[in-house]
Amino acid sequence: MPSREISTESAAAEDRDPIFVVIERHRELSAHHDAAASVSAKLEDVADFFAADEISGQRNLALSEHANVLIRSKPTTIAGAIALTRYVAGLPEWELPDDDAWHRVFLEGLADAIDEIGTAQRLGRSGG
């Protein structure tokens, strides 16, 4: 039954850690952008293409802005830190920020979050 306990812990962490909301929003924006880009690619009429391409551009901007939110967000649980790390590691380049140094911001924030989680856990165990 250990797998049931782990999944229960993950579900509980998901309820407590807002990083799961940030990740889910990024998934939604990515799907919206991908859908709009797929429509644009199939259109042959120039006017239709430009209209669809405008929508695709707007969705790309929303995704890019949220990608910056994603890499600057700090998980509040170990399960959240693991989920965020795995999620970002699996993203294609077009779903990440355009800034070449995004990984530095992401890793520094993640390290700070893990340090804060560890400190909170140590204080919780010591009762203080």
Results as ranks from 00 to 15, higher is better:
1 M>K: 07
2 P>L: 04
3 S>L: 02
3 S>E: 06
4 R>Y: 00
6 I>G: 00
6 I>Y: 07
6 I>N: 01
8 T>H: 01
10 S>R: 14
10 S>I: 14
10 S>V: 13
10 S>K: 15
11 A>R: 03
12 A>L: 06
12 A>P: 01
14 E>A: 05
15 D>Q: 01
16 R>I: 06
16 R>Q: 09
17 D>K: 02
17 D>A: 00
19 I>Y: 03
19 I>R: 02
21 V>G: 07
23 I>H: 03
23 I>R: 02
24 E>W: 02
26 H>G: 04
28 E>H: 03
28 E>G: 08
29 L>N: 03
29 L>T: 05
31 A>E: 10
32 H>K: 10
32 H>R: 12
32 H>E: 15
32 H>T: 08
33 H>R: 04
34 D>Q: 12
36 A>L: 02
37 A>T: 01
38 S>I: 02
38 S>N: 12
40 S>V: 06
41 A>T: 08
42 K>W: 03
44 E>I: 10
44 E>F: 10
46 V>T: 15
46 V>M: 08
47 A>S: 10
48 D>E: 15
49 F>M: 00
51 A>N: 11
52 A>G: 03
53 D>R: 12
53 D>H: 07
53 D>Q: 14
54 E>T: 14
56 S>R: 14
57 G>Q: 07
57 G>L: 09
57 G>Y: 07
58 Q>C: 12
60 N>C: 11
60 N>A: 14
61 L>H: 12
61 L>I: 12
68 N>G: 15
69 V>M: 08
69 V>G: 07
70 L>Q: 04
71 I>F: 13
72 R>Q: 14
72 R>N: 11
74 K>R: 15
75 P>S: 08
76 T>S: 13
77 T>M: 01
80 G>P: 01
83 A>Q: 04
85 T>N: 13
86 R>V: 11
86 R>M: 13
87 Y>C: 09
88 V>R: 05
88 V>F: 08
90 G>K: 09
93 E>M: 13
94 W>P: 13
98 D>Q: 14
98 D>E: 15
100 D>Q: 09
103 H>W: 15
103 H>N: 06
103 H>T: 01
105 V>Q: 03
107 L>K: 14
108 E>A: 00
109 G>D: 13
109 G>Y: 08
109 G>Q: 04
110 L>A: 08
111 A>P: 10
111 A>R: 11
111 A>V: 02
111 A>E: 09
112 D>C: 09
114 I>E: 08
116 E>W: 00
118 G>V: 12
118 G>Y: 09
119 T>A: 05
119 T>Y: 13
121 Q>M: 10
122 R>I: 04
122 R>M: 04
123 L>I: 04
124 G>C: 00
125 R>P: 01
125 R>W: 11
126 S>M: 11
127 G>K: 10
128 G>A: 11
